[in-house]
Amino acid sequence: MKGWINGIGWVTAAGYSGGRSTDQQPLCSGSVVAPKRKQIFDKPDLRFGRLDEFSRIGLGAIALCLRDGGAEEWSDKRQIGIVAASRYGCLATDIGYLETMIPNSGALASPKLFVYTLPNSFLGEAALRFGLTGNTLVLNQEDETAGLAAVRFALEDLSWSEQPAVLAGICDLAPPVEFARADEYPGGLFMLIEKEPASAVASYGEVELRGDDIFFAGHQVADFRSLVGECLGMLIR
């Protein structure tokens, strides 16, 4: 099962960017600042500022990824899917929502926040902005390399469906302190994986699923961060 990585975009502790704009490894420890609308979209987008942080980070990463892959503009809806791996999901939004629900016995529960207590809501935000009509879901896995689970899923979906492309990546805010781990790279990072190399931009290279292992440009990659590093053509320290 093979595909071509044609775009990469992220909102992480390293900032926000597409893969063609920097040679810095974007998956690093630190805090993530949810982007403002102007940092992602040129045009007004009234809903963006109302989104929870998790959704703004995920949507921002998807937008930058599509832009990096030359696939941001659209006129007809496109059968492109999104698979997002997440360790914590929208836990922070859940907690925020509970802070509106618990006082006053639910009388002041926030409908605006509740909508984003489903971790796949930001995928809907991305779908409607970019006309993406493929399969859209969030994966939670007991996996140290959760991002690769999304890439595996995407490559299988590409192989088993009519979708020409799938956005695969990760989205997580920094966890509550009691759950913090040493290997946390909070933020959102997505790859545009297509059945064919991109025509509008140079592809980063071919990614392949052999058994459970992921190979990029013929080399096995150990984790999602390494795959990103390989794509950006840099050594991971």
Binding site: G81, V115, G124, G134
Partner: peptide, 21 residues
């Protein structure tokens, strides 16, 4: 089969686009 409406986060597409697909 699975498909997104690409229409709204909470409201279904009135034309049933995603479900039809």
């Amino acid at each position: 089969g699975m498909a997104n409406d690409a229409h709204h986060v909470t409201a279904p597409a009135r034309d049933g686009y995603g479900l039809i697909q």
